[in-house]
Design a protein around this nucleic acid. Structure first.
Lengths: 154, 154
DNA sequence: CACAAATAATCAGTGCCCTGACTAATCCGG
DNA sequence: CCGGATTAGTCAGGGCACTGATTATTTGTG
């Protein structure tokens, strides 16, 4: 009695979507480098010398998780970590040559994978897909920190 | 150079969407019972006496993960596990009264949470949101097991 | 200047998620 | 009826994700 239909639950759908993506990534992109790891590499290609916390902010990972991911990338020799001489709390991150090469290689494969992943949708639907997901995710994230409400609510 | 825009990567978006959902679930539904745990409870409300593997299939979890989730629910006294007398490999699962009560309570809260989560979208957009995600997830899952192609590809 | 508040990173603990290797039970063809 | 294939579940191992507590450094104020 009273069981609900999970296919109308966005959380369930989100989990399934991510699982599907994980699977495809593993077969089409890399078994060593994961999608969050690629996101970190990508961020450091765009902005070399960022500190750990900021990288986490860019890719959407909390302080603990980003530390683990970076430690793995460091162990694989894809990035270097040095204390910020200006601020002894920070570590500054920079890709190694190997890290840059890896990013380049995976960028190509990732693009291919995205095409396959989104193939079931038409071009307009793909745009909509991005837009809808982004709006929902952004809104939920906004609830996290009440922040300064731009408009006063009566 | 050559960094890509992660906001056009479905995998990145899917991860962010799930994180946002996790957050909202934690604050609006339960800090003890997780969304996958609720999915298992829900499946057993609909079909009491299912075996572990089938429950995993229903909610989209592999044999290892479903075993962990079920072990946690068992420890909390929300379900019972008994050997199938007909097939000694299987365990049959059934909610306890406490499990049923928990499911009922969370069903209400989950519905409220889904409303908040989807609030940024209009009714038509919500329908589209489900449809697009489902199609992408289903297609990717289909790539997993080649299965029997219904139509011959020339 | 000194001390409290804030900040960057780590650590411990919990839970989800997968693969690959293994055990135990059942099924099926000879 | 018996031995090989299949199937349900476990276990080891790696990675992602969060919270709460702790440590080290910096900042900001009296």
């Amino acid at each position: 009695m009273a069981a609900v239909d999970l296919t109308t639950h966005p959380g369930h759908l989100a989990r399934r979507l991510q699982q599907a993506h994980y699977l495809l990534w593993n077969t089409m992109v890399s078994e060593e480098i994961t999608s969050p790891q690629f996101a970190v590499l990508n961020t450091l290609v765009a902005e070399p010398g960022l500190d750990q916390r900021t990288v986490g902010e860019r890719v959407g990972l909390d302080r603990s998780t980003i530390a683990e991911v970076i430690s793995r990338l460091g162990r694989r020799g894809l990035l270097d970590k040095v204390r910020d001489p200006q601020d002894g709390r920070r570590f500054l991150l920079r890709l190694t040559d190997e890290g840059l090469r890896t990013h380049k290689k995976l960028t190509v494969r990732t693009a291919r994978m995205n095409q396959v992943f989104l193939a079931p949708l038409s071009a307009e639907e793909q745009t909509l897909f991005f837009d809808l997901i982004r709006r929902v995710a952004d809104a939920a994230e906004g609830l996290r920190n009440p922040a300064a409400p731009l408009v006063a609510q009566p």
